[in-house]
């Protein structure tokens, strides 16, 4: 899996190449969180504030599903101050997914919030599967 930060005149995007769309979606959740907090705990970190929550998301196609998925992860951060440290997608179709989110409560002194992501956009969005790999690209409104 390879994650690259993308430039935009006002905002920030990410592009991920992975072996499957499911893996790319999982990495996109962590990628977005790494924009929001400077010190995102390593994947798999378990602390006393560690929580697991299951969510289900649907969409009309892959791109819509990607936006709705990341919007749910963002919602948990913005409304409940829960940082997604790891996302395990346990069920994945072209228009729906089910996931277990490993969450940690935000502690500003530990995680150092960096930027507020306002929303996940459709600007130049990509969610595509190639012959041997998958690619997602998404920009965030800062």
């Amino acid at each position: 899996m390879e994650l690259r930060l993308l430039e935009h005149p006002a905002d920030v995007g990410i592009e991920i190449n992975a072996s499957s769309l499911k893996e790319a979606f999982e990495a996109a959740a962590r990628g977005m969180m790494s924009i929001i907090v400077e010190d995102l705990p390593p994947d798999g970190t378990k602390t006393p504030t560690h929580l697991i929550r299951s969510i289900e998301v649907d969409g009309i196609d892959g791109e819509n599903l990607l936006v709705n998925w990341l919007s749910e992860v963002l919602y948990l951060y913005d409304a409940e101050k829960l940082i997604t440290v790891r996302a395990d997608i346990t069920g994945f179709t072209a228009t729906s997914l089910r996931a277990m989110l490993h969450l940690e409560q935000l502690h500003p002194a530990v995680h150092h919030p960096r930027l507020d992501v306002k929303a996940v956009t459709y600007h130049q969005i990509v969610a595509e599967v190639g012959e041997t790999s998958a690619r997602v690209r998404v920009f965030f409104d800062i």
Partner: peptide, 17 residues
């Protein structure tokens, strides 16, 4: 703030569908 951001997110989805 987050309220307005979510309203836009929600209705982009509604409008797209």
């Amino acid at each position: 703030r987050g309220l307005g951001h979510q309203v836009c997110t929600d209705y982009l989805d509604v409008m797209m569908r």
